[in-house]
């Protein structure tokens, strides 16, 4: 009850924190899509390169987030950005690589060879084949990789408050340091709702982006 009263009284701060959180996650995912999807496609013709890339990305995701933030501080200090928004963004972009690369790679390699052959035989260039056939068919699986990445990054971004990146994690960290259950619960609840809402929204987007011919 107290928590609810706190939330009502501070709704504008919660909204501001939520927007901070979303902008961090949104920017990281946008950048990650631009890097991970092309990488996922580029490694399809070469299984050895694919293994190497997927392995590297899995190692990246195994590093605990707080450790990754720590590692980035000395590196980014060189350009005077040791803490704050930029290291948080860099870490999130790195974390988002694996789910998106893995799904893109799996989806493109799973496109039936016969479709690829038909596309080549009819005179499509590699680029046209990707645009007309492979990417549309792979899209549902790629978007589901993006969903994984978004949910993961909403969670990781909550920890980014410790390097001064703001976001909903602020409520949690303050709740802990001030032993204030209201703030703690507000932060935990908001992050959870945000993750669930983002996942559902992307599920809707996934349905919209899937050609009716591919729906089951």
């Amino acid at each position: 009850m107290e928590t609810l009263a706190f939330m009502v009284a501070n709704w504008s701060v919660i909204l501001a924190r939520t927007l901070e959180h979303l902008s961090l996650v949104g920017a990281s995912i946008a950048i990650a899509i631009c890097t991970a999807v092309p990488i996922g496609i580029a490694i399809t013709p070469n299984p050895r390169a694919a293994n190497a890339v997927l392995y590297a990305a899995s190692i990246m995701i195994t590093v605990p987030s707080i450790a990754l933030f720590g590692l980035l501080i000395p590196v980014l200090s060189l350009i005077g950005q040791g803490i704050g928004y930029l290291p948080a963004l860099v870490a999130l972009v790195l974390y988002a690589q694996l789910p998106i690369i893995r799904n893109t790679y799996a989806a493109i390699t799973n496109v039936e060879p016969a479709l690829r052959e038909a596309a080549r035989g009819m005179g499509m260039t590699t680029f046209q084949r990707l645009r007309e056939v492979e990417i549309p068919i792979a899209l549902p699986v790629i978007v589901s990789g993006v969903r994984n990445a978004v949910v993961l990054n909403i969670a990781v971004a909550a920890i980014a408050t410790y390097i001064g990146a703001g976001g909903l994690g602020t409520f949690i960290s303050r709740g802990i340091s001030q032993t204030d259950v209201r703030q703690l619960l507000t932060g935990a609840f908001s992050v959870s709702v945000l993750a669930i809402a983002a996942d559902l929204a992307l599920l809707g987007a996934q349905r919209l982006l899937t050609s009716p011919g591919l729906r089951t």
């Binding site: 039936e112 052959e117 038909a118 050609s211």
Partner: peptide
């Protein structure tokens, strides 16, 4: 295998 594009 016919190879019609399922998305079209």
């Amino acid at each position: 295998q016919i190879g019609l594009f399922p998305n079209k």
